[in-house]
């Protein structure tokens, strides 16, 4: 019993120390009309050196002449598989400098995953169906994600330090650098930053319809 009490005492003593070393960062993204900006890609890089984020294996499917999901964020070194679940053939390409590749005309899953070994934005297209467009954000940031329906995204247990917060979305008209900012995590209280767009987003792509399947 005395030993257990000693452990509890030690833990109580440690708690304030932990909270002093780590903090929470909350990002709130708002559109130009002050409505929440859902789906924005947030990346957070620390000034201090951190262990690289482990690569992942992601999947971007092709369903009803659309990339699903149409935007993903992956760490550098990740791979992405591009199955084609449609009954029509697709011919996927990227001419983005971050990763140039092409997957010749195919159905199903004939190709191995594609490695994304450089940070940047990759725009995906289909050389047969021009209305198909998708994006892969390859990041070397330590923390990343997408804002929820309320325009919010947060990360916990950030070590103290200065962090560079960036925001990106395919429909952005604001320059990306105008939305960048540095945020200090002191660990004493949660840090919150609000990213307010100055310009309206581009119109969202029109949804594919029953009829568009029949169109060129």
């Amino acid at each position: 019993m005395p030993r257990i009490s000693a452990w509890i005492l030690r833990l109580l003593w440690l708690c304030p120390a932990v909270s002093a070393m780590a903090g929470t960062l909350s990002v709130q993204a708002n559109l130009a009309n002050h409505e929440p900006f859902a789906g924005a890609v947030v990346t957070v890089s620390g000034a201090a050196t951190h262990a690289p984020v482990a690569p992942i294996k992601a999947i971007v499917d092709q369903i009803n002449l659309a990339f699903v999901p149409d935007v993903i964020v992956i760490p550098v070194g990740s791979t992405v598989e591009f199955p084609n679940s449609d009954s029509v053939s697709h011919q996927i390409y990227s001419f983005s400098p971050t990763k140039r590749f092409k997957l010749p005309l195919y159905h199903g899953k004939p190709y191995p995953p594609v490695l994304f070994d450089q940070a940047g934005i990759v725009t995906l297209g289909c050389n047969i169906h021009d209305r198909m467009v998708g994006y892969i954000v390859v990041t070397d940031a330590t923390y990343f994600g997408r804002t929820d329906a309320h325009g919010a995204w947060s990360v916990t247990n950030l070590p103290r330090g200065i962090y560079h917060v960036s925001l990106w979305h395919p429909l952005l008209r604001d320059s990306v650098t105008s939305l960048d900012r540095d945020v200090s995590i002191t660990g004493e209280e949660p840090a919150t930053t609000t990213v307010q767009l100055a310009q309206a987003l581009r119109p969202a792509p029109l949804q594919a319809t029953a009829r568009s399947r029949d169109e060129y």
């Binding site: 001419f95 092409k102 297209g125 050389n127």
Partner: peptide, 10 residues
């Protein structure tokens, strides 16, 4: 003949 686009040109 419809080659893949190169640097945005097709």
């Amino acid at each position: 003949y419809r080659p893949y686009p190169i640097d945005g040109w097709r």
